[in-house]
Amino acid sequence: MSRLNDIPAGNHAIVKDLLSDGMLRERMLAIGLTKGARIEVVRHGPSGDPTVYNIRGAMIALRKEEASLVLVTPC
């Protein structure tokens, strides 16, 4: 299993688990980072961070810190 921030741009990954807590976890669930969700890594920002992810059709930017709390398997 890897972390979402380790997936290279242009690849896809399936969410396995969240390591976040509290408000951040609620927010992640609300935007659709639930188990089994297929995420596309779209692009990195000008300095490599944050990164844009296609989460259920919406473009959401996450920082490395947040993305590292999402456990995924590459696909």
Binding site: M23, L24, I31, P50, I60, L62, R63
Partner: peptide
């Protein structure tokens, strides 16, 4: 104070 970062880039 809690901090969360998610930034939506709308179309």
């Amino acid at each position: 104070i809690p901090s969360t970062f998610t930034l939506e880039l709308p179309p």
